[in-house]
Design a binder for these strands. Structure first.
Length: 178
DNA sequence: GTCCCGATTCTA
DNA sequence: AGAATCGGGACT
């Protein structure tokens, strides 16, 4: 059960995204295995929030790798990313789905008893209790409370596709899942 | 200040 | 297919 070091995230985003599959995201007393992610890479990626430069919202994407970038969308949901690559270069991996592992009763309390507790970017934020106010900018490489853990699990096959829900940048196959 | 729309989810 | 719901960013 090793906690991922900052050096894990300080690498090319496509590599980090694929290697994040199977790892365990721990947020407080809840955790789940990451099984779907998407990469958003730099100001040259039209689907990336940094496509038009730095703003207040996307500020943490420009910061240290290994921190959470959580933003509010559609007036009612949050999405959570983990920042990648060197400080100053805006990139991150969107966590799109997890398989609940611990704290399932807590998740059920937040989401309602349900077979789809955390299989979506908005749903997993609710299940794990993440929001912009409490988690945007939180460092996953410093404490054990919020972190990413490798328990040795490796997906047997990694599939890829175009990213979901975007209007620009549809040509890039930067969604990974297993 | 105003306007448009979104890295979604749930219901029908 | 359509609604819910509101903050951010572009633009007047």
């Amino acid at each position: 059960m090793n906690r991922l070091p900052r050096s894990f995230f300080d690498r090319p985003t496509l590599q980090v995204a694929q290697e994040l599959l199977g790892k365990i995201l721990v947020i407080g007393k809840t955790s789940g295995r990451i099984n779907e992610v998407e990469a958003y890479i730099g100001e040259g990626d039209p689907a990336c929030h940094a496509a038009r430069g730095q703003t207040e919202r996307n500020r943490v994407m420009y910061g240290k790798p290994g921190r959470l970038y959580v933003y509010f969308t559609y007036g009612m949901y949050h999405c959570a990313n983990i920042v990648t690559e060197r400080e100053g270069f805006p990139a991150a991996v969107l966590i799109r789905s997890i398989e609940p592992l611990t704290g399932i009763e807590i998740m059920e309390k937040r989401r309602g008893k349900n077979d789809h507790l955390a299989d979506g970017p908005g749903k997993l934020c609710i299940a794990l209790g993440m929001d912009k106010k409490g988690h945007n900018g939180v460092d996953l490489c410093e404490s054990g409370e919020n972190t990413v853990v490798d328990d040795g699990f490796r997906p047997s096959i990694i599939k890829k596709s175009r990213r979901i829900g975007i209007s620009a940048g549809k040509n890039k196959w930067w969604r990974f899942y297993y």
